[in-house]
Every structure is written in C-alpha cells, then in structure tokens.
C-alpha cells in the first residue's frame, strides 16, 4: 500500500453542504425526486474527494454524503428492520431507532456502488466504511432475536458479506466502526467474537473506530478485537490515554484522533504537532495513522476543511523531523 509514514486519513463522515441538507428535506416532503437527490449526493462526494486530494490526505473517505445516521443507513437497507417512533437522546433532540422485527438479511450490497463511485474519482485509496454488528445491535430495538448475542452474530454475518464485496470491489482498507463497544465492558467479548466473523478471511487492512470512551474499562481487552488497527479519539481525552498505553503496550496500529470534532475551535498546527509527537513517545511511527477524533459531520463545512488542513500540515512537519532524525526511511 503506497502511503507515506504517518498516513493521514478521516474517520468517516463529513458535513453535508447546505444544498444537500436542503435537498434531503425536500425529498422527505416529496418536493423533489430521488434522482435529483442522488445527483446532489454525487456532486458533494466529488467535492469532498477533490478537497482531500488537493490538501494531500493519503487515505480518503467518501464522506458519507448519502447516509443519514451510521446505524439507520444500514437498518434501512437490510431486510428484517423497521424504524421506530421518536425517542429522545438529550434536550430537545429526538431520533428514530431501528427495530429488528424479522431475520436480518442483506437484500443487496449496501455501500459498494458508492465506494466504487468515490474510488473512480481518485488514484489514492478510498476506505470502505461499515458500521459494526455490535453497535447496530446496541442501537436497535430487538423484537425478533432471543438475545443480544444472537442478533449481534446475525448482523456480523451480513456485515461480513458486505466487507467481502468491498474487498472484491478493490477496497484496501475496510473500517468497521464500533463506537458502542466502550459502553458495556462486560460485552466486549461479544463484540470481539462478532468482529471475528466480520473480518474472517479478509486480506484488506481492517480497522475499527471506537469512541465515547471510558477506554480504561476496556483496555487492554479491546486489543483482542480482530482488526489491524484501532482508531481512537485522543484529543477529546486530552491524550490521557497515552499513560494507559505506556503501562500496557498498544499492540496494533493506532488511528490517532488529533483534532476535537465537537469544538468549533480550530487547533493550531503547533498543537497538533505536539499531539503527534506525544504519541510518538508511545508508538512506533509505523503504527500511527493521523486523523480527526471522530466523524466531522457535526461541524460546518468550512470548520471541517480547516481541521483537515491542520492535520495534513502538522503531519508533514512531524514527518520531516522523523526523516531528518533518521528514525524512518525517506518516503515522503
């Protein structure tokens, strides 16, 4: 895989431009046709791919312009799901939760067309992006399967099918997000088992993103998740996790979240350089991929772009330092 040391990448989602937000609303009111929405989703995807190329990101994402929510998208596409009435998450924010009402099956590939669309636009690798079985289970109501485990393993089967198709379509990196894993430490073994089903036999590099961390509670157990890389939000925890990793070595590659996605405040280049350098005290350079803490979809388009730019510039500077110090070979 032809990427430099400290490859830069993204966790998945980018903000939708205003014209796309408006079009999604119009579609829900029946004011435009699906074909029109699709056109705009393609336009937004193109823009994001071009932007990532232009600023020099190494491993691209399609930005998920066509997805609403990371679980609902899959639930709406899979067989066996319905969508519930509104439930509240906090304040005046409500969402609809998927409900499993029948055996879960993949009627058709869910992400392949969009992956191919994005990959055709660039020579750089584009990541295949999936939501993990444990998280889909945890964020859904279950009216069909006898237990959380049964549902999780059923979902693992269909996500595996999708991962295999992504690999066939040329994905060199397949990310299977499991943000819910940090919530119930006692169920970590289930998430590990399910991920084993998803990644079985894949040759692509596999990674998972975990967030909302009380990572102390699932570390070092989370190193058992059968993927090559774990992506974590580190800037949100002020990098306290690094102390944990000093005590018990992190044995996988790490996706290093270096900018806070929940804050409007733009990190300075010096701040991000400092974060990467702190990480280099704990990890070997070859272990590290640099990215934002989490999906950037909640930021404004301009804020997201600025944060990505800082990541690329800071990483370039750290790379130069590494090469001149002779700690890695030249490939810049």
């Amino acid at each position: 895989m032809n990427v430099p040391i400290l490859p830069t990448t993204s966790v998945g989602s980018f903000p939708k431009p205003d014209y796309l937000k408006k079009a999604r609303l119009q579609l829900s009111r029946g004011e435009i046709k699906e074909k029109k929405l699709r056109e705009l989703e393609e336009r937004a995807t193109k823009d994001w791919i071009h932007f990532q190329e232009e600023i020099g990101i190494d491993i691209l994402v399609d930005g998920e312009m066509y997805r609403g929510d990371m679980v609902t998208y899959f639930a709406e596409t899979l067989k066996g799901f319905e969508i519930s009435g509104l439930v509240r998450s906090y304040g005046n924010r409500y969402y609809r939760k998927p409900v499993v009402v029948d055996e879960v099956k993949r009627a058709k590939p869910m992400t392949i067309e969009w992956f191919q669309f994005a990959q055709r636009l660039t020579k750089k690798p584009v990541k295949g992006m999936l939501t993990g079985p444990y998280t889909i289970m945890d964020w859904s109501f279950n009216e069909y399967y006898g237990s959380r485990r049964d549902l999780t393993l059923a979902l693992a089967g269909v996500i595996h099918e999708e991962a295999v198709d992504l690999e066939k379509a040329g994905a060199q990196y397949i990310q299977i997000d499991e943000p819910a894993v940090s919530v119930r430490p006692e169920e970590l073994p289930l998430a590990v088992e399910a991920m084993g089903v998803v990644t079985k036999g894949l040759k692509a590099k596999t990674l998972t993103h975990i967030c909302y961390g009380d990572f102390e509670k699932i570390y070092p157990g989370m190193l058992d998740i059968p993927v090559d890389q774990i992506d974590l939000e580190l800037s949100n925890s002020s990098f306290n996790l690094l102390e944990l990793f000093k005590k018990h070595p992190f044995t996988k590659e790490i996706g290093l979240g270096v900018v806070d996605v929940h804050s409007h405040v733009l990190e300075t280049k010096a701040q991000v350089v400092d974060r990467i350098e702190k990480a280099l005290e704990v990890f070997r350079p070859e272990q590290i991929y640099v990215d934002p803490d989490c999906g950037l979809k909640t930021r404004e388009v301009q804020e997201a772009k600025d944060k990505l730019r800082v990541i690329v510039e800071a990483t370039k500077e750290v790379r130069k330092g590494l090469v001149s110090a002779g700690s890695v070979g030249g490939k810049l």
Binding site: S84, G85, L86, V87, R88, K97
Partner: peptide, 8 residues
C-alpha cells in the same frame, strides 16, 4: 418509559 417511543 422514555427509552421507548410513546406509542410503545
């Protein structure tokens, strides 16, 4: 009951 939709 707030974890459920009201109808449920």
């Amino acid at each position: 009951l707030e974890f459920l939709p009201r109808a449920s």
